[in-house]
Design a protein around this nucleic acid. Structure first.
Length: 278
DNA sequence: AGGATAGCCTGCGGGC
DNA sequence: TGCCCGCAGGCTATCC
């Protein structure tokens, strides 16, 4: 369930040590989690072997590792993906590790591992970060952290879909998943099953602000460790201790004490307060 | 257009 | 203890 705050937490936990590191070697244990650049085969070079890491970027739930020499990777954690950084492979789990990068850094040799038991995630390779942005990220909406009221109102006005479906649609807003969708709707006081085009101007703005706020709070709390989420140093986040609605079906609303309701909306288990959200 | 459904995949918890 | 079942969920494809 890594959503935007979890991926940003991973990005931040990697950044300090990855930037400037030289990739000595890449070991692929499961080639089918990797996607080669368009028209090329999956070479070690395409997976950054021999390059130096220049910076990390993120859009929504997707992480980019960009080399100085050109090639760039896009890593999607899917449901259960993890990135670990450790002094040696012995310090890392061995099961479900699909790709390992050996890195030379100022602090000595490090190993970066991509682990993904459920394999909903993957590693996509591109000739350049520019190519990544123009192809893979072209279908993503604006990053949820900086979501503008104007953009969200425009999207909402153009569809009769439910609010929940719009928030989960990565083309509308990038980075919101089931957890932060429910939390944002609660914060905005809006019912998940409401048709998007019925929101007035102030409600649309309120929802945009709520999305930004729940994502920023999630980042500040270093992500939600609902099941197995941990950062690159295997530290858990604290966001799960602050959920107002997610996972609290039939518990009391923290605002009005009415029991929270749970129902399938947009094919996702959705929890909301029938009193506070309209 | 967009809703519903299935499929990908593993781990976990409940029921028996 | 062990087995089966359902559920969790990001994303894509397909059908209606």
């Amino acid at each position: 369930m890594p959503e935007l705050p979890e991926v940003e937490t991973v990005r931040r936990s990697l950044e300090g040590r990855l930037v400037g590191a030289r990739v000595i070697a890449v070991e692929v244990c499961r080639a089918d989690v990797c996607v080669a650049p368009r028209g090329l085969s999956l070479s070690p070079r395409a997976l950054l072997a021999g390059t130096t890491i220049e910076r990390l970027d993120r859009r929504g739930k997707q992480l980019a590792i960009i080399s100085r020499e050109g090639p760039a990777l896009c890593i999607h954690l899917g449901m259960s993906g993890q990135l670990f950084l450790a002094p040696g492979a012995r310090r890392l789990p061995r099961d479900h590790v699909h790709v390992r990068w050996r890195l030379a850094t100022l602090q000595g040799e490090l190993v970066l591992a991509f682990r993904d038991p459920r394999r909903f995630g993957g590693v996509w390779s591109f000739r350049s970060f520019d190519e990544l942005v123009r192809t893979r990220w072209a279908s993503l909406g604006p990053d949820g952290v900086g979501l503008s009221a104007a953009h969200l109102r425009l999207v909402l006005a153009g569809t009769r879909r439910t609010l929940k479906a719009v928030l989960l649609d990565q083309r509308a807003v990038a980075g919101v998943g089931n957890i932060y969708a429910d939390e944002a709707l609660y914060r905005a006081g809006l019912a998940p099953a409401r048709a998007a085009c019925t929101l007035n101007r102030s409600e649309g703005s309120r929802l945009a602000r709520a999305v930004r706020e729940v994502l920023r709070l999630g980042i500040r709390r270093r992500g939600a460790s609902v099941r197995d989420f941990v950062d690159a140093d295997r530290r858990r986040g604290a966001s799960q201790d602050h959920f107002k609605v997610y996972g609290r079906s039939r518990a009391r609303c923290l605002g009005c004490l009415a029991p929270l309701r749970s129902q399938f909306v947009a094919q996702r288990t959705t929890v909301w307060c029938p009193v506070c959200q309209h």
